[in-house]
Design a protein around this nucleic acid. Structure first.
Lengths: 211, 211
DNA sequence: AAATGAATGTAAAAAAATTAACAAACACCA
DNA sequence: TGGTGTTTGTTAATTTTTTTACATTCATTT
């Protein structure tokens, strides 16, 4: 009977950015930070920062601000980053290769276990230290290793087939880099990263700067 | 004195996805399509599709739907894709390499002219057929070739320096893959593609599925 | 111990975006 | 030619998100 409080997706994106910024700030040895300083650091407004954080609790001290280390700890907890996330990557092409050694993932606690590809010239080899397996080994691997997330970095034509295997293997979430809309049951969470779409939003904004 | 009509950024993202879907539909030889069919194809609602399109004009025929080819033409015009976009890529690392040969860019009319990197072992070589130049050659190159967009794929620590050069060279837009917030003057449009943030929004959504 | 200053947390207001609803327009058929 | 069914374009309603404004709280100083 409790009132449902829906938290904007944009808030989640922003607190992830706050967290990344706080890591940097903590590294500089700064102990306390105000909403205004966070806003300045990430390009937002103080009110927005406070509002975003207030969805989850009262982490600050009035008149003082937020303790950098504690706030970052709270945010990581909110984002689900206090547990480790085991991830597999599907697609050992150029994009897959880039993602397999992307520092940002490891730094934030994501653990890529293996790469899957259907190219038999690649299967058995390593990609940036990660083993490459065939896609027909994927379902077993996911179950045996309790993999939570699959990152799809295959061409659009194969993406749904890959997704179907992931779904069958009871994956929890999919980060989809293929430029296509995936059909998944509602218990599987998908997030699309659409590179061309991003570029097109940019061109639109360039062309309509002044308007 | 005209009323300003602000178009949601989400609308721009969506029409870009519609366009990609229409390409596929057109390839299948389908001539007309309804808002409901588009919605089904991209995972949206018919009302949303119509509303998004209505910001820009009346492209359909009542009782019939939209002519696939014409609608796609209109959308591309809206997104600024009727002109060609000359792009450079900064960073010849793994991510830069992946982006340099990303099909989705070329398919949508983006033309990557060159890659820039500070690693002198790479300068002078080619990356997927594209010349690699030193970053100190970048400003001249941008002006001489009237480059509109720079794609930043360098580590976060160097991203602002690269951005500063792009800004000085009067670039129009920046697609930023570096996990950091760039400071730019307001006439330069930036769009961030933050890979770890996307993964963290995914983990949040997984952890809060049922709520 | 009271006063001052600073910055949070939140309630209320405003703005923005989405959804619903329906009249208008068109194709097709009898 | 008139009626029927379909689907758009648009207005209105609703929902969501952002912004504003300020009372509350805490640290510090006198």
């Amino acid at each position: 009977m409790g009132v449902e409080i829906k938290i904007p997706e944009a808030t989640i994106s922003r607190i992830s950015v706050y967290s990344r910024y706080l890591v940097e700030v903590e590294r500089q040895g700064i102990v306390n930070i105000s909403s205004g300083e966070i806003a300045e650091g990430v390009g937002g407004t103080p009110a927005q920062v406070r509002k975003d954080l207030a969805y989850f609790g009262a982490f600050g001290t009035r008149g003082v601000g937020y303790n950098v280390r504690l706030l970052n700890q709270e945010i990581k907890e909110i984002l689900g980053l206090s547990r480790q996330w085991d991830v597999i990557l599907i697609g050992a092409g150029n994009l897959g290769s880039a993602l397999s050694q992307y520092r940002g993932f490891r730094e934030r606690g994501f653990n890529i276990l293996a790469v899957f590809d259907n190219d038999m010239n690649k299967v058995g080899l390593k990609l940036n230290g990660l083993p490459i397996y065939a896609i027909n080994q994927m379902a077993d691997f996911i179950r045996e290793n309790k993999v939570s997330i699959g990152i799809i970095a295959v061409p659009a034509d194969y993406a749904q087939d890959v997704a179907d295997i992931l779904i069958d293997s009871e994956i929890e979430g999919i980060l989809n880099f293929a430029p296509t809309v995936l059909t998944v049951p509602e218990e599987v969470i998908v997030r699309d990263v659409d590179l061309a779409v991003n570029l097109e939003v940019l061109t639109y904004n360039i062309e309509n700067k002044d308007v």
